[in-house]
Nucleic acid binder design. Structure first.
Length: 640
DNA sequence: GAGGGTACCTAC
DNA sequence: TAAGGTAGGTACCCTC
């Protein structure tokens, strides 16, 4: 799951909730013995727990068609099935190399390589002309850029030449071999020897083409997803071939190949920009001068100057065909989509409404910004997503502003559910050089309970709690469950200043300019209601309050927080609270039979355990309220 | 408080 | 032991 899918949590429970819409039974290990030694009912619950844990992984594999997909990958690459699970990309490339080399009676040398730290130069990212574009922006992409470069120029171990070979074989430049833009590396032309890598890549691309054709014909949404996964896997495999040649810590690195590939790529994106801008201009009879506003590796975003989709698409097709002609087969520049409107925030960060036909938009596409990142809390993700939808789809900027303001106001008044504030980050190292919120929390949790603490590779979930002024974030991170159980207040200001403000400003600034500052100041940022504890709000008045509940006079050495004078009056108050608690319990008892998110059935006294399930928090909160209230009442009655 | 360095995650 | 690549934004820690 971790390898193939990017999720916020990889617990069995949350993965199943994500893919199956079903959750596991929650049974803490400490009560297993009691359940077993109990009665038929408790043993039944234990049995359900065991059964579910067994069949959920099975159902997951069925749903994701793991067997079929892996089998297919094993066939394509020629590696044993279990290598696909236990090993990386390299073995797949090596295996294909061995296969092709064997056909041609070639032996691949076993090279001892000491990995170097040196990197070779990668792709070009065109400096973006940041801003909000209320005109169609046409996007052209090279399809499978790196594989097609390797095929077009016949880049391979078996075609790489050195001086001695050129001399011995009496090869002529340009006629017999080419010189690449990287360090004048030379490769023979395919008519003298066709490389192994280009052959492998052609096979992979053909397989991908087939999968894509089937994808187009398929109507069943799930089979479509599988085919899409397959063509993506073939694409990754094809791209891995380039990566393999550049893997200095690998089995057969060849920087001449990988660095030549990226060097060609850099030339090509530059050339594309120049060709488009010099052809599509007023001087050549077009209505406007085309301008490339951004591009990354294999793509260019073009402002043709037209203001309707049909023209933007026609020009896109024309430009793609025009540029493709300038390059060798099978290099192909394709028109795929138009963004309209388009918000270009920075390199690798943009959002736009995605059109493939002029009649209906396909989707809201966002790249790199908070909506697609897993290291933000859901609040940020949801606010940014909603604001973008309002701006780009509804064209309602003031509505987006209002929504952002409302959210800020809700946040500062503690009205946001804590599940929206949970941040997750992967714990990827054993020793961190600098302290960090998630690593420090993992350490603290380990001290509390080594059994349940996150370990290397896990994603750590945390919230930021109130602490002394200016204390660093790594002291303010806390386990959401612990916060809930101990009624610890959340640092809402942190969420405004360190989580929400910058992402919001980045979206609104290109549209509103200086006016966007008003988002973060004004009435909505005033805290009108005092920040109460974020959880367990119902019965918060008692126990720790050192003043009388009725007349507010300070109390000393009194277990019950009321004075004798007020006690009789409070009897009524407690009855009211009890009624609330009872109705709440009934309400939640009804709720508890079904997870409100996934509709999975739940044992009545079992909690849905997904930490980012809002209902989970509601139930946990209600349980705590009931427990608190019961405790208070017991003590109160006893003293009375 | 500025600026460098680290960590994380993403785009391609 | 085995490990696809580089570019790049952002947040936070640490040092000066």
């Amino acid at each position: 799951m971790q390898r193939e899918h990017k999720l916020r949590s990889y617990s069995l429970n949350s993965v199943c909730a994500h893919f199956l819409g079903e959750q596991k039974e929650e049974v803490h290990h400490s009560i297993i013995t009691d359940l077993q030694n109990g009665n038929d009912e408790t043993r039944r619950r234990l049995a359900i727990y065991c059964l579910k844990d067994a069949y959920l992984p099975q159902r997951l594999m069925d749903k994701l068609m793991c067997l079929i997909n892996y089998m297919e990958m094993a066939r394509v690459t020629g590696v044993p099935f279990n290598y696909l699970l236990s090993r990386g990309q390299q073995i797949k490339v090596i295996s294909q190399l061995f296969r092709k080399a064997f056909e041609q009676d070639l032996v691949i040398p076993a090279v001892k390589v000491e990995g170097t730290d040196e990197q070779f130069e990668g792709a070009t990212v065109i400096e973006p002309e940041k801003g909000f574009y209320n005109v169609p922006i046409t996007t052209l992409d090279f399809s499978s850029l790196y594989p097609s470069i390797m095929i077009a120029h016949n880049l391979c171990y078996t075609t790489l030449l050195d001086n001695k070979e050129i001399e011995n074989l009496n090869l002529k430049a340009e006629v017999d071999y080419i010189t690449t833009p990287y360090n004048s590396a030379r490769f023979v032309k395919p008519n003298l020897r066709k490389g192994l890598l280009p052959t492998i890549l052609e096979d992979l691309l053909a397989a991908r083409k087939k999968a894509k054709a089937e994808l187009k014909k398929e109507t069943d949404p799930f089979k479509k997803a599988v085919l899409d996964g397959r063509q993506l896997a073939l694409k990754t495999s094809a791209n891995s071939v380039y990566g393999f040649t550049g893997a200095t810590a690998g089995k057969l690195p060849c920087i001449e190949i990988s660095a030549s590939v990226t060097a060609y790529g850099r030339q090509m994106i530059e050339r594309t920009k120049q060709e488009v801008e010099s052809r599509f201009c007023i001087a050549n009879g077009y209505k406007h001068n085309a301008h490339v506003i951004y591009g990354d590796t294999d793509s260019v975003m073009i402002k043709f100057g037209v203001n309707n989709l049909i023209e933007a698409m026609e020009l896109g097709r024309e430009a793609a065909g025009y540029v493709t002609e300038k390059f060798l087969n099978p290099i192909k520049l394709e028109f795929e989509k138009v963004y309209f409107p388009y918000l270009l925030i920075n390199k690798k960060r943009y959002a736009g409404l995605y059109w493939t036909n002029p009649n209906n938009w396909d989707k809201l596409d966002t790249k790199g910004i908070e909506t697609v990142r897993r290291d933000n809390c859901l609040l940020v993700q949801n606010v940014v997503e909603t604001c973008l939808r309002k701006i780009l789809i509804d064209r309602d900027v003031s509505g987006a502003e209002e929504y952002a303001k409302k959210t800020i106001s809700d946040l500062l008044q503690n009205k946001i559910d804590m599940s929206q504030l949970v941040i997750t980050k992967a714990l990827s190292k054993q020793d961190y050089s600098a302290k960090q919120p998630h690593s420090c929390l993992a350490e603290r949790m380990h001290k509390r309970d080594p059994g349940s603490a996150p370990t290397l590779g896990d994603r750590v979930a945390y919230v930021i709690i109130k602490a002394a002024k200016n204390s660093p974030a790594y002291e303010k991170s806390e386990d959401p469950i612990y916060v809930l159980e101990n009624n610890i207040p959340i640092d809402t200001n942190y969420y405004l200043e360190n989580q929400l403000s910058k992402p919001l400003m980045r979206i609104f600034e290109p549209i509103l300019g200086n006016k966007s500052n008003s988002l973060l100041s004004g009435d909505h940022t005033r805290v009108t209601k005092n920040t109460t504890p974020t959880v367990g709000g119902l019965m918060k008045f008692a126990v720790k309050t050192p003043t009388c509940l009725g007349c507010k006079t300070p109390l000393t050495g009194n277990d019950i927080p009321v004075c004798k004078h007020c006690k009789p009056k409070l009897g009524e108050l407690f009855q009211k609270q009890l009624d609330v608690v009872n109705s709440l319990e009934i309400h939640f008892a009804r709720l508890w039979t079904q997870c409100q998110r996934c509709q999975g059935s739940l044992h009545q006294d079992v909690l849905c355990s997904s930490r980012d399930c809002p209902i989970w928090y509601m139930r946990k909160k209600a349980q705590k309220d009931v427990a608190d209230a019961t405790g208070i009442l017991e003590r109160f009655n006893h003293a009375w």
